[in-house]
Design a binder for these strands. Structure first.
Lengths: 208, 208
DNA sequence: CCATAACTCAATCATTTGATTGATTCTCAC
DNA sequence: GTGAGAATCAATCAAATGATTGAGTTATGG
């Protein structure tokens, strides 16, 4: 035995890069992007700094790698693409459930996005990666909300894209240590859902 | 004349600290917290590094100063405190308008909060400053929404605090260079408002 | 088995960066 | 005016940090 205590010393480039990205992602989520040091990343992976630089040219390249792999990892957690043929409310709930689970099981992902956003100001590549992701993600919500409106489940006067920005924006607020962790996640979602749905019997009997 | 080209060389401690905080705030908003250098702050203020350290003990103290002054500056921009005696919808709109204007006129403030959030993990003082602010800010929305419910303007089944988190979360998403700047700000608010308000005539005539 | 490529590391560099020291200049109460 | 305190700066330090060099070590195709 004694092979579980000794990870393989030699690892293929692709796999090593993934290990490096994962370590960097966690460190960013833990201590913040401002405190990210290439040395710390190497140490967490269990390799020498020069080995890290062999696999990832520079710190900027490392951040690009983190952005791309985080985006891919996050997208892989999403449910099937929106469809007009399925119940929109169920699709919305599945979408939100997937996001909730990602916050619970892989909090580094969403936190990384928040941290990397500050690089978007100066790094065009990261900006593109992030914007593509954000647009695509909100786009899924917009599609579902549009289907729900057409299905008569959601308000007829709902504007899908702004409503999608509202929903994703509200939920994104839970990424960086949400108010009381995830305790308020579902109550907040309940408000989103109630706000979108058609209400059938609502009377104003005390109007002056 | 020629007094507009030569700022006073000697400035009182309080004022200098405010100048330093303002410069740091802008730099954080521009290049991100990760790229903040005490040298750059001093340069922007137009003073020597040692002068900066004379006024602000350390970089950590600088960040604490930035957090506190940003909180104060932001709170000073808010409308009068919520009241059950005034129209809740008008109060909500005033609150959102104030936030919108702060994003437009002093974007450093909201951006700084986002950047400083990453320090909350390790710095308890900054964490407290930020959390106090967030709780208080969302609390205003919760109060207004509660009043609106009691006034019959908002849904009877609205849960004020989660709804407030939904609203502030959705609007906060515009702080770090929102999707297309502030272009989508009011459409998103429209969705929030519609979601909160009571709807009077909504029929389901195609139910199966 | 061997040679080549792929991977790893110890040692080191050149800058950057937060911070200090001690001298200098300005302000203001008296 | 003048002296004491407040504010400023040039010069410098020590540590941190991104990156490189060149010499090992391991895997793999032939």
């Amino acid at each position: 035995m004694a092979n579980d205590s000794k990870p393989p010393a030699y690892v293929r480039k692709d796999e090593r890069r993934e290990m490096i990205a994962e370590a960097a992602r966690r460190l960013i989520a833990e201590k913040g992007l401002a405190a990210l040091r290439t040395r710390d990343v190497a140490e967490r992976v269990g390799i020498n700094i020069s080995t890290l630089h062999f696999h990832v040219r520079s710190k900027a390249a490392l951040l690009t790698l983190v952005a791309e792999t985080s985006r891919d990892a996050f997208l892989a957690l999403l449910p099937p693409d929106p469809s007009p043929d399925r119940d929109a409310l169920a699709q919305l709930r599945a979408e939100v459930q997937a996001f909730h689970d990602s916050l619970r099981d892989r909090p580094e992902l969403a936190r990384c996005f928040g941290q990397l956003a500050q690089l978007a100001e100066t790094d065009a590549g990261i900006a593109a990666t992030l914007e593509d992701f954000t647009r695509g993600w909100a786009g899924r919500y917009a599609a579902i909300i549009g289907f729900g409106r057409d299905q008569g489940l959601f308000r007829a006067d709902v504007d899908p894209y702004p409503a999608a920005l509202m929903a994703t924006g509200a939920l994104t607020a839970f990424a960086p240590r949400g108010p009381g962790g995830l305790a308020q996640f579902w109550p907040v979602y309940q408000e989103i859902e109630r706000g979108l749905q058609v209400r059938h019997v609502e009377e104003t009997d005390d109007a002056s």
